[in-house]
Amino acid sequence: MKKANVYVTLRESVIDPQGTAAINVLHAKGHDNVKDVRIGKYIELTIDDTGQDLDTAVREMCEKLFVNTNVEDYRYEVLEVEEA
């Protein structure tokens, strides 16, 4: 079994309305050293390891479903996991 962990965030050029709201609160609470907050999504995919090229498959799943590349960036890691 393999596990792909996908991290989706808004692109740098896009204002993150949730991040903006959160940083205002953090500053009000005295966390003045926080310079930026980007709030995103974390997706875990558990995948049967059939020896196929997982990079291509994960990228396709991201770009066709999980990520809107107009506004979002993503990165992922593929890990080996023990059979449950």
Partner: peptide, 11 residues
């Protein structure tokens, strides 16, 4: 159509 949608500015 071009573009995309974000959460409303005021959440």
């Amino acid at each position: 159509l071009p573009g995309a949608f974000l959460k409303n500015r005021d959440q």
